[in-house]
Simulated scan of single mutants.
Amino acid sequence: MPADSSPPSRAESAAPVAVLATDLDGTLLRADGTLSPRTRDAIAAAQRAGVPTVFVTARPPRWLDHLADVVGDATGGIALSANGAFEYHVASRTVTEVGTIAPADLAAIAARLRAAVPGIAFAVERADGFVREETFVRRRRLPTDDRVETWDAVASVAAGKLLAVAPDLAPAAFHDAVAAALGDTGELGFSGAVGLAEITARGVTKASGLARWCAARGVDRHEVWAVGDMPNDLPMLRWSGRSFAVANAHPDVRAAVHEVVAANEQDGVADILDRIALDRIAGRAGRAGDRAVAPASRQES
């Protein structure tokens, strides 16, 4: 079932935070894909204060392995991958499919798109890795095993994401053509990869993945703070109790959130985490002070 995408009420948005959900590329990570020492420390401090950070990303599972030491026990060791299609236990490298596209749906969606977009080619992100048909050619930022199969073989196994390119079309025209042809048969996300269409199953978004993860841990949506930078983050940002964009975010994202923080290169997410940790510490101190003065108040009465 799709996550409720209606924005929380003002009262819900002011609720105490229980978890910070963050996108990775362009948000938590620097432009070179690394995690700054300051942000690493801020994640640890917030977790010690009782607020874990859960990664919610378009990345496939295998692109998360280098972050295993940052994914804390408080999240169950889980990162949410492929725009909500997979839960990935990073330390054990175990993929759980929570919202994949069935083989019959892969074939149907591809047929619709081939009829509408000349020269389109496909690949998939599956639980067992990346697989493409021969005509899908794209330079990828991170290394990947390059498995080439016939389209029938590619589409024979459920996939977290269906990827598409059409090199002869301008990126904006390609994205618009895919959106029109796809209709409501799937979810088209834009994570910043120019000229790449990233499609998940109908109703599967970062919001649905995060909602499932939170429900399993008894966390209400109004207790979730979320931060992102690109349009594929919007479902998660609208679902969460309080939403943030980094200053380098897409204009549509900056316009949709409660608050804009510093850019990823200036550790904007660390600023949020520092605020969370300080508020938690201050709250504990206040409660301890209330308990300390209570007996004296009773004596005075």
Rank of each mutant, 00 (worst) to 15 (best):
R10L: 13
L29A: 08
E125A: 03
S5E: 15
A277H: 00
A173K: 02
V204G: 04
D152A: 15
V257S: 11
H250Q: 07
Y88W: 12
D145F: 09
T57C: 02
A104D: 15
A263W: 02
A102Y: 04
G192P: 02
D168P: 00
S297K: 11
V71Y: 11
T39R: 07
G195Y: 03
V51P: 02
D233T: 05
A44F: 00
A256H: 06
T22L: 03
V253N: 04
E198D: 14
P118Y: 10
R10T: 12
G209Y: 00
R30T: 12
T150A: 14
A58F: 04
H250N: 12
S156R: 13
L188W: 04
G160T: 01
A172G: 09
P235V: 00
A173N: 03
V293N: 00
G50Y: 08
P7C: 00
D271V: 05
P8Q: 01
F86K: 06
A282Y: 06
A288W: 06
D105G: 07
P251I: 06
D279Y: 04
L64N: 08
A294C: 00
A173Q: 13
T150Y: 02
P52R: 08
A46K: 01
G72R: 06
V253H: 02
H66S: 14
T135K: 10
P295F: 04
L67E: 08
V98Q: 11
A296Y: 09
E12Y: 00
V124A: 14
R59L: 13
R40H: 14
I276P: 04
A288K: 10
G189N: 03
A247D: 15
A172R: 13
A153S: 15
E134A: 15
D267H: 05
D229T: 03
G186Q: 07
A170P: 02
P60D: 09
T39K: 08
R59G: 07
K161G: 09
T144K: 00
T200N: 15
R30V: 01
A115H: 13
V54L: 14
D32T: 04
E187P: 00
P61C: 10
H258N: 15
L29C: 08
P61W: 00
I43A: 08
D267E: 09
W225C: 05
R10E: 13
P103G: 01
D41H: 12
A255Y: 07
Q47N: 15
S156P: 10
D128T: 13
Y88H: 15
D290T: 01
H89S: 11
A31K: 12
S81Y: 01
A85S: 10
E134P: 15
P251E: 13
R112C: 09
S6N: 11
R30S: 12
G183I: 05
A31E: 13
G192T: 04
V194P: 02
D23C: 11
E97C: 03
I276T: 10
E300P: 01
A215S: 14
A179M: 01
D41F: 00
V194A: 14
P167H: 10
A121L: 02
G129S: 09
A11E: 13
V224I: 13
A31G: 12
D184G: 10
S5T: 07
V204Y: 02
P235R: 05
R62L: 12
W213E: 08
R141M: 12
A58Q: 04
A255V: 05
A46D: 11
T94N: 12
R280T: 08
K161P: 02
A249M: 04
L67D: 10
A153I: 14
T205D: 04
A111V: 04
